[in-house]
Write a protein that binds this DNA or RNA. Sequence first.
DNA 1: GATATTTGATATGGTCCATAACAATTATCA
DNA 2: TGATAATTGTTATGGACCATATCAAATATC
Lengths: 173, 173
Amino acid sequence: MTVSKTAEKSSEKPADAAKGRKDAGEPQAEALQLGELSEQLGYVLKRAQLKVFENFLRCMASLQLTPAQFSVLLLVEKNPGRNQTEIASTLGILRPNFVAMLDNLESRDLCARIRSTNDRRSHILVLTDKGKAVLARAKKLVATKHEARLNDLLGQANREALLGMLSKIANEF
Amino acid sequence: MTVSKTAEKSSEKPADAAKGRKDAGEPQAEALQLGELSEQLGYVLKRAQLKVFENFLRCMASLQLTPAQFSVLLLVEKNPGRNQTEIASTLGILRPNFVAMLDNLESRDLCARIRSTNDRRSHILVLTDKGKAVLARAKKLVATKHEARLNDLLGQANREALLGMLSKIANEF
DNA sequence: GATATTTGATATGGTCCATAACAATTATCA
DNA sequence: TGATAATTGTTATGGACCATATCAAATATC
């Protein structure tokens, strides 16, 4: 829980085998060659994903929201009145693993489970007022701190092209 | 160990809340709206990464190589004679976690640890003959089955542009 | 030569992911 | 109708991956 206390920590950044280098004299065993690795899409994709999540967590530190939690809040806001199974499955989360996630969000009074009257097995999910407020602040943080930085790095057009290609992979691969 | 016995399994594919739909009549509670989620780079990035890894594992099923193992073999081949710390750190793997990985590769006779004569603390890593042969086959599988399919999906130019942008994120974000 | 550092390794704990199984409820259909 | 099957949320559990502390052996530093 508690969102990565280690988000800022070491973790072993790659491409940095020579650690405390000050680019002075020293023997300094030369850097390794990545070779074909840097052409492997899977490798680069994973690296990029870690960096993006890491930055996301930093941006959300004040709200203590993980990417997964943010996605749940977004989806519940957009689709109020759906049950756990529906929300979880469209996010690719297995129902058993979704329980603890909801326990967390509910304990923080960000969303609520409501026993459905139609089908008394299922729990309808809705955002609380606090949940709506937090999500609104989260959206602003993401837009101004997170996505904005990607625009700076890639440019608006490239960022959209990137998103399009990733969507294509995610949906059609 | 043993590389994902569940690579082919269910796992709960997203964007498929309505399960056994045959597009017949039926009530069929309409699909959920993803909304802003599909514009979140982190979300799409993660989805794409999972798909790519999944496909990678399928392509490598005959060789039983995970993406991480493949990257180790590639890096050791390109940089023979380096020790565990160097290989692990350039891959972003922490030394303690690298031990079991190497135990696995070594037990399959794909690479070998050799006590260094210069520094008797460290283990020099090299590919065995079998390791070289397996890696060669792995490269072919990746090229013909994995990367080729991405070219089909995106086109050569787009695939390269994608790789460039992801590298930029991985390195400069 | 005393002290600190590095290397590979072990132990351990956390998080995420996946499966089986269960009680309560609802759907099916003989 | 009532027996059986299916669904929902849940618990328990195990595996994979990641991160930290710690250790002995070897080396570096002073």
